[in-house]
């Protein structure tokens, strides 16, 4: 009680998410055609470690503490590339699933970080329905892991709570894994 979201909030998220997906479909060709900045070097689809570093950043990947002289806002290699539309719209469905799998595997053994939330949301937004069986079990694994992490939160004020609730909500209610719903 107090940790899980209201039904009304969940319904609003599903509705917003559905609109976001429609907009992606509408704008996909545009973003796919945009040139990437020179500093954006996307890993190959099967480069699992490369994708983890790309999305989460080297600081998190290597578990290093940024020094004060680092400007965290600028070095995407260190802090991770955000899921820009020009990046995610380039990914095939197979790549979306593969990156999703890499990140969910990473999350299976580590704590939640903001970069992870942004990428999971972006990848889920690009994941086409109907889901392939592998994608099904993948996103179920994600929702279960989110529930597990949430169950161990000590306070409702924990800033990861809303992100965990959002993931559970989208998997359970948008992707219709109703048995996992709050």
């Amino acid at each position: 009680v107090g940790f899980s979201p209201s039904l009304r909030w969940q319904q609003q998220q599903v509705s917003n998410f559905s609109e976001v997906r429609q907009s992606i479909n509408k704008h996909r060709q545009h973003w796919k055609a945009q040139a990437l900045d020179d500093n954006v070097i996307m890993p190959k689809p099967d480069d699992e470690e490369g994708w983890k570093k790309f999305c989460l950043g080297e600081n998190i990947y290597y578990n290093t503490t940024p020094t004060q002289s680092d400007d965290p806002g600028l070095d995407y290699v260190k802090v991770g590339f955000p899921p820009f539309l020009s990046i995610v719209c380039r990914l095939s469905q197979a790549s979306i699933s593969a990156v999703l799998e890499n990140l969910i595997n990473w999350f299976g053994e580590r704590e939640f970080v903001p970069q992870l939330g942004r990428w999971l949301y972006a990848l889920l937004a690009c994941l086409e329905k109907p889901l392939l069986p592998e994608a099904h079990s993948l996103i179920r694994q994600l929702a279960r892991r989110c529930s597990e992490v949430r169950a161990n939160l000590e306070t409702k004020e924990d800033e990861t709570l809303s992100a965990l609730n959002l993931m559970i909500c989208l998997v359970a209610r948008y992707f219709e894994q109703n048995d996992l719903a709050d």
Partner: peptide, 30 residues
Amino acid sequence: GMGKSEDSDIWDDTALIKAYDKAVASFKNS
């Protein structure tokens, strides 16, 4: 404003990040 439609405004390169941040913030405010 300035002739920029809401659609092009929202759908810049960071649209997904904004949508995520907005969703997360809405729970804190709910």
